[in-house]
Simulated scan of single mutants.
Amino acid sequence: MSVGQEHDSGADDPDLIRLNKRSLFTPSASVAVEQHSAVPHVSRSTYGTAKVEGRLTSPNARVPEIITQRCGGITVKGHTLKSFAYTTDAVIIRNTNANAILAVYPFTGEPVITQALLTVAQMPLFVGVGGGTTTGPRVAELAMVAEMQGAAGVVINAPAPAETIETTMSMVDIPVIATVTEDDEITECKILAGAAIINVAAGARTAQVVASIRAHHPEIPILASGGGREDRILATIDAGADAITWTPPSAQQLQSQMMAKYRGEV
């Protein structure tokens, strides 16, 4: 009996298990939240940029386009960075299109955390090394380890004195970002201590503080939080920020939205 005849003979066999040829990664049409094409999507923007999107690409962790369009950016080792995603979520880090990651968290810095984030990051990672909970020599030591692991830069929290900035700058060859909340004498001292980038995190007053620092220091690279609204992002850029930190939705928020769609609630 030929192979074809053998196949035909089992055509009506109710016990025969049949496997279809659908890919494991092809969503079921009845439950899919996002429908994906069979081939990558290729297009060209109005600015002349060619775009290639994968079949399973999700737009949910994408940076607001106004940041890309309006920011001048900060060039670090030849890479111009306009958007920094403020997150330590490995899933978001892997799927966002931000130019860089700002990984600052409310615990003492640990090299194992930095290593884990570097494993999933596809863009430069700037990691927090203390300055608030963690103080003293440990800040500079963590910065040295982060540099050896491959971090693009380190972030020192607002409470750290200018001396910590100066010590860290003398021990590493990657940019030290100093976080500030005001344009005051402390910020002035941190700039004079050699901070490579000033990160303004002043909440609703961020644009005002950025404008004040920019007036005194037109040369200093300024990174600033843009908030969640486009008008606040634009105001911060217009005030003089070179790059914007953007807080993406968490994986839990996105999963909740997806489950709501699966349940037919939205």
Results as ranks from 00 to 15, higher is better:
S37T: 14
A11G: 02
L234T: 15
R44S: 09
R18V: 15
V266Y: 15
A202T: 03
T26W: 13
V39S: 10
T80V: 09
F126H: 08
A235T: 07
E34G: 09
I177P: 00
Q252C: 12
T181F: 07
I222E: 04
V155D: 06
H7C: 05
P218G: 11
V39W: 09
H36V: 09
E163W: 09
E53Q: 10
E188S: 11
N99D: 15
L118V: 07
R229H: 14
Q252E: 14
S9I: 14
I66E: 04
A11D: 12
I17N: 09
A207F: 03
D13E: 03
Q115M: 06
E166L: 11
S225M: 08
V172F: 00
T181A: 14
S58A: 05
E182F: 13
E34L: 13
G131F: 05
I101S: 03
V39C: 01
S9C: 07
V180N: 07
F107K: 06
G72V: 10
Q257A: 14
V180P: 02
A241R: 00
E147A: 03
L254Y: 06
I67L: 10
D12G: 14
K77R: 15
I197E: 03
A202E: 07
L117Q: 05
M123K: 15
H7D: 07
A178Q: 04
I113T: 14
R214G: 00
P175F: 02
V145C: 03
R229L: 10
Y47E: 12
R22K: 10
T181Q: 09
R138K: 12
P159T: 06
S28F: 14
P59V: 00
S45E: 10
L125F: 05
A116Y: 04
G132Q: 08
V39N: 08
V176P: 02
F84C: 06
S30Y: 01
Q257C: 12
V112C: 02
I92M: 04
V31L: 12
A61L: 13
V145W: 07
A201W: 06
S170E: 15
A32H: 02
V176M: 08
Q253Y: 09
V31H: 04
M169Y: 06
A152H: 01
G10H: 12
I191L: 01
G228I: 11
I186G: 14
S225A: 05
V3C: 12
V155A: 03
V33A: 11
Q255S: 06
A235Y: 02
V120F: 01
G264S: 09
Q122W: 10
P159R: 01
V210Y: 08
N99K: 05
K82T: 05
L19S: 03
A143Q: 05
S45M: 02
D173E: 10
T80S: 04
T87R: 04
V154Y: 01
M171E: 14
L234R: 14
D184R: 04
H79D: 06
I244M: 08
N95G: 02
K51D: 09
S250I: 13
G10V: 11
L19Y: 11
I197W: 01
S225Y: 07
N95W: 08
E65L: 04
L142C: 06
R22G: 07
G131I: 07
S30G: 10
T75A: 12
A239S: 07
V3N: 11
G227E: 03
Q122E: 15
V266C: 10
T167H: 01
A32M: 15
G136A: 09
E265K: 13
Q5A: 14
D231T: 04
P14Y: 00
T57E: 15
V266L: 12
